[in-house]
């Protein structure tokens, strides 16, 4: 299988391990990623909160590049990039006049915008049974709280999953052999782009999310967004210093969890670069155990 790839800026920086783990597991699952040549930032939150046109134009440039490079489908692992690209696609398709204006701004034509996949849709397409087939590690000790965050299944209509009670990520996680927990704050906001300017807010909101997950029995958080990851992972130190009885919980990207199931090491997946150490017992060599 082959698919266009829009990594997003974080994948080159603070979320390097997200990119790294994805590339590692896709080698095993036989998926070729073709990076959009000369992709640029989607504009993220900062663009759409200050200029609607800027935001549309920045996303549109990437969609136009992908189309020009012959891509029919693109995969955007970052939930925020996915949301920007997918929302822009809807807007460009539904508002012709706006489309013409944006085409002039970016000096590119837009005709057939590629299909855009987020990480959950992407693994649905790859087929969760492929993960189960190639599973090498027993992850049943993991009780995962799947955290969708704000942008993976919202707004209604962009995504196929339910925007209030989603379960598509759980389906993928179950395919790795890990357990999932039912919890309340799968979709609650972590404070997102306020991480730096209003760390106080992000600390409060992240704590609520992490507490609820642990109260429902989770011992690991699974995320699909670099922003969510950095808030939930890095900000646990701030939480700990504010609330001394707070218990930390590791935060993994969905790709890292799949990587563990496929037998890759923490180092190969970049899990060692997280702020909260992942040290839950997992058993290697599922096959051996079964045959024994």
């Amino acid at each position: 299988m082959q698919i266009g790839y829009y990594p997003g800026c974080s994948q080159e920086g603070t979320a390097k391990e997200y990119d790294k783990s994805l590339r590692e597991i896709l080698k095993i699952l036989n998926v070729d990623l073709t990076e959009i040549d000369d992709w640029s930032c989607c504009g993220a939150t900062s663009a759409h909160v200050t200029s609607h046109k800027l935001s549309l134009a920045l996303s549109a440039r990437n969609l136009a590049l992908a189309e020009k490079q012959g891509m029919k489908e693109i995969f955007a692992p970052c939930a925020a990039c996915y949301n920007r690209l997918a929302s822009s696609k809807t807007e460009l398709q539904n508002h012709q006049e706006q489309k013409y204006e944006i085409e002039t701004i970016i000096e590119e034509k837009i005709n057939n915008i590629p299909e855009i996949y987020n990480i959950v849709n992407f693994f649905q397409k790859v087929g969760k049974e492929k993960i189960t087939e190639k599973k090498k590690t027993d992850l049943k000790n993991l009780k995962a709280a799947c955290y969708y965050g704000c942008l993976l299944v919202r707004p209604n209509g962009i995504n196929t999953d339910d925007s209030e009670q989603p379960d598509s990520m759980e389906e993928i996680v179950k395919a790795t052999g890990a357990q999932t927990v039912d919890w309340n704050f799968k979709l609650e906001c972590c404070g997102a782009a306020h991480s730096i300017a209003r760390t106080d807010i992000v600390v409060d909101l992240s704590k609520k999310i992490l507490d609820d997950a642990q109260k429902h029995g989770a011992n690991v958080m699974i995320v699909a967004c670099p922003m969510c990851h950095s808030n939930l992972d890095m900000r646990q130190k701030n939480i700990k210093s504010k609330f001394s009885d707070y218990k930390v919980i590791p935060v993994l990207y969905l790709s890292e969890l799949i990587g563990l199931a496929l037998g890759l090491s923490k180092k190969e997946l970049g899990i060692d670069t997280h702020f909260i150490e992942f040290d839950l017992p997992i058993k290697n060599n599922v096959q051996e155990e079964v045959s024994a």
Binding site: C9, S10, E12, G13, S40, C41, G43, A44, T45, S46, A47, V49, T50, L54, L58, A193, H194, I196, A197, R198
Partner: peptide, 22 residues
């Protein structure tokens, strides 16, 4: 809440200058 806007502006300056966030 001026720091919020300062953050957004700093972010956008990166993109304006480099094309990607740095």
């Amino acid at each position: 809440d001026k720091n919020i806007l300062k953050f957004h502006k700093a972010f956008l300056r990166q993109i304006k200058n480099h094309g990607r966030s740095w």
